[in-house]
Computed example of a mutant assay.
Amino acid sequence: MQRRTSATHRDRRCWLALCLCVSAVSAAAAPSWQERLTAALAHIDAAPDGPRIGVYVRALGSGESASFQAEQSWYLASAVKVPVAVAVLRGIARGVYQLDTPVTLRADDYVDGAGSTNRQAVGAALPIRYLLEQMVIHSDNTASDMLIGLVGLAQVNAVTAEVAPGGFGPITRLAEVRRATYGQLVPAAHRLAGRELLMLRQQRDDSARLQYLARIVQVPVGDFRLATLGEAYDAYYATGLNAGRLDAYGELLAQLADGQLLPPTQTRYLLGLMERVVTGPQRIRAGLPAGARFAHKTGTQRGRFCDAGIVQPAGGTRVVVVACTRGELSLVRAERALREVGTALCRSGVLTQGVPDAPSCAIRPPALPAAGHADPP
């Protein structure tokens, strides 16, 4: 009887050891959230009817990260407004000015884009609070240039240099983006006035813009250095202005989320503004699980679209995600790709406590029909 009992115990020990071995093999065989995510991103990037993408993701609790072409330089467009906001709020934290301090609108501040600031009259005194809300929530370019004028470009570029030395190209005023782009066509465009930039934007199409520009600078279109406005944008993008690596931008957001860039009051204020962003509702946000909060900033320009922010999933830890597209003029198709990035992020398990393909994650949207491109904002 003793021999049978010992054999039974031995059999049980072997069975338990076998179960543990099988469990370990299964765990080792299961792909990590990073592997699931990068495989999905490669699929999105390879779609024949979509743009090329770059993505950086970091789980702030564990520090684990995933990168897909994030080490390349990507044009950030209006995503550069986050370091502008940080520079302004640092001035407020130092007591240099307050949220209610007025800033005077100058004729040189006007630039096309979203928001209501460029409908204000020259000489209007607009509070910093209003300008920050317009810049972050509505991506108002005129408000951005007023705030850059307040703190100076040196302070703005000091933020990015501090966070990730060498990770960002120079940040410029938003009006200079337009002047530098049109300047690729004809050097005299570097002297365009703010109201002239607004009028150029209001022209019906690229051909009309070139004709209007020719009248302003008194140079025939045939004498322009490049034939199209699209070529001018490509030449501008090649300068590296307002561009950066996505992992560097992810570091910026991680330090903001962890309170390393601003004191607690200013950190809460900026993240609150970023949660109220109204631009890009069909980008990453559309692919996130229900109940997730997203403090983010979008960027939109011809053939260049971005979405970058901090996801706070219900019951989970915060995750930084930075995504940009290029090579696709269609806003609809670029936003679909960014929405798929949000879906892939959710289905990887990093937002759902390690559960891949959770029911709360959106399904992959169907293919879209061909669509025309959106004019640059």
Rank of each mutant, 00 (worst) to 15 (best):
L150G: 00
Q202L: 13
G167M: 10
A189T: 07
L198E: 11
A154Y: 04
A189E: 04
R195P: 02
L192T: 02
V151M: 03
L198W: 07
G169T: 10
V159N: 07
D206V: 06
L153N: 09
G166Y: 11
V151Y: 02
T181N: 03
V186A: 14
T172L: 14
A193L: 13
A188N: 03
L174P: 00
T160G: 01
A175Q: 11
M199G: 04
L198T: 05
V163F: 09
L185I: 07
V163D: 02
R179W: 00
H190S: 12
V163I: 13
Q155W: 07
Q203P: 03
I148F: 04
G167V: 08
A164L: 11
R195E: 12
P187A: 12
P187M: 10
L192N: 10
E176L: 11
A188Y: 01
I171D: 00
V159D: 00
R179E: 04
L174S: 13
L147V: 08
A161V: 01
L147Y: 07
R179D: 00
F168R: 08
V163W: 10
G194Q: 08
S207E: 12
V156P: 04
R178D: 08
R201S: 13
I171E: 08
I148G: 00
V151N: 08
Q202W: 02
L150K: 15
R201G: 14
D205H: 06
L147G: 07
I171V: 15
V151Q: 04
G152I: 10
F168S: 10
V163M: 08
G149M: 01
L198S: 00
P170R: 12
L210H: 06
D205Y: 03
A208E: 14
L198P: 05
I171P: 05
L192W: 05
Q202Y: 04
A188L: 14
V151L: 03
A164D: 12
A180K: 14
G169W: 02
G149P: 04
L153E: 12
Y182C: 01
P187F: 05
R204P: 03
L210K: 06
A208P: 09
L153Q: 12
I148E: 11
R179H: 03
V151E: 00
R201N: 15
L192Q: 05
G169P: 11
E162L: 11
Q203Y: 01
P165L: 11
T181D: 00
L153G: 15
I148K: 11
I171Y: 07
V151R: 10
N157Y: 05
R201P: 03
P165W: 12
A164V: 11
L185P: 03
L174K: 06
R204A: 11
N157P: 05
Q202V: 00
Q202M: 14
Q202G: 13
L150P: 05
F168V: 12
G152V: 10
Q203I: 01
A188K: 15
N157M: 06
D206H: 15
